[in-house]
Design a protein around this nucleic acid. Structure first.
Length: 165
DNA sequence: GCGACAG
DNA sequence: ATCTTGTCGC
């Protein structure tokens, strides 16, 4: 795995942060940034929920449908669903919501809380976990998300207050 | 029933 | 997300 390209978008936020309604706040900016990519990826890792959502369609799922692209949703804490908490490093526990498994809790590092991995769009329970694990590179969060987050921070510093992660 | 609640 | 001191590990 190696870095290929990065793009970003700066615009005015026109919707407040309301858990459950991410798409309205960050949808446009995310799509704009995606459209600027010269190399379109085969899959998107989104820092938000997938199908573990009150409407079974969190931001990761929503963006996957809009862009017609497979997605995986990864967050630092659960929004919906129930799961046993993995204690041992490398341990994964199934995350259930709406009567079926929709993701995992993965204890990446022994000293930090597990990350939440959820099916977004056109990915499976099995593939979302496998792909995420393949993207781990020593940090709690998978490398693509870590780099994207760092990139956002850099641009934010250059342009001042105006973005949204 | 109440509190908590992806970024 | 944002603010923000001191502390810990590679």
């Amino acid at each position: 795995m190696e870095f290929v390209e990065r793009t970003f978008h700066i615009g005015k936020i026109s919707f407040p942060y309301i858990p459950g309604y991410f798409s309205f706040r960050e949808g446009e900016g995310t799509i704009r940034a995606y459209q600027k990519l010269s190399n379109k990826p085969d899959l998107l890792m989104i820092n938000a929920c997938g199908v573990t959502h009150p409407a079974n369609a969190g931001f990761a799922s929503h963006i996957g449908v809009v862009l017609d692209k497979p997605t995986i949703g990864i967050t630092k804490r659960m929004f919906c669903g129930r799961a046993k908490i993995p204690q041992k490093e490398n341990e994964a526990q199934p995350l259930y919501d709406g009567g079926k498994q929709r993701g995992w809790l993965l204890k990446v590092l022994s000293e930090t809380k597990p990350i939440v991995i959820t099916v977004g769009h056109r990915t499976s329970i099995k593939s979302c976990l496998e792909i995420t694990i393949k993207c781990l590179k020593g940090s709690k969060m998978p490398e693509p998300l870590r780099l994207a987050h760092r990139c956002a921070g850099e641009e934010k510093k250059k342009w001042g207050k105006s973005s949204g992660t």
